[in-house]
């Protein structure tokens, strides 16, 4: 099974949808292998959406890109590379987004109360400040988002009941 832990919700929705500025719903296209920019990426989307602000971009990420690496210290977004058009230029840049504390320097007290099962419900944040894995900048907005590149495949937990939340793994409904 593909881990639901990498998805923000437990719905089975796969096809991403984008509401363009006009209000019309646009279906981003999942590129086939011959169209991909990098053959080693997991999945690439062709999208066409105008985003006015950094906040609208974060909302878009939260709504559409539901792949996460579930770690014990947080959730990390897998859409690491985006292609944008901004101010007459087009380029690729990195976007690091996460749920939890990042970098994850928790002290012992913070770790003791950290509940990853609960954290999954939070919205992600982009690491906007000086950070080598976020080269998109707030002053790039407004921009047109053209491509989204997911680097890595979803996790495949060997023991779902041990890794995922009891609700996600089905343990909550199980008689033991």
């Amino acid at each position: 099974m593909t881990a639901q832990g990498i998805r923000e919700d437990s719905t089975d929705a796969v096809a991403p949808t984008v509401e363009a500025q006009s209000g019309a719903v646009v279906e981003p296209k999942v590129k086939d292998a011959s169209e991909k920019r990098f053959e080693w990426s997991h999945e690439e989307w062709a999208v066409d959406v105008e985003l006015d602000t950094a906040e609208s971009f974060e909302e878009w990420l939260h709504r559409e890109t539901k792949y996460y690496i579930r770690a014990n210290a947080g959730f990390y977004g897998q859409c690491v590379i985006v292609c944008i058009e901004s101010k007459g230029d087009e380029f690729l840049c990195y976007v690091d987004y996460y749920k939890g504390k990042f970098p994850p320097w928790y002290n012992a007290e913070e770790l003791s109360v950290l509940d990853i099962d609960e954290l999954r419900h939070d919205a992600p944040q982009v690491k906007w400040d000086e950070w080598e894995w976020t080269t998109l900048q707030k002053n790039d907005f407004p921009l047109r988002l053209k491509e989204v590149i997911f680097l890595y495949p979803p996790q495949e937990p060997t023991m779902e009941w041990l890794f995922l939340s009891p609700e996600e793994s089905g343990l909550a409904e199980m008689d033991i």
Binding site: A73, P103, P104, L111
Partner: peptide, 26 residues
Amino acid sequence: MPIEETVKWAKHNSWYVADLLARRGT
């Protein structure tokens, strides 16, 4: 591997190293 593919593994590296160091830091 192609030079550009090192980006994929560098990021992958950073995810699990971050998670490990979160524990080691205590």
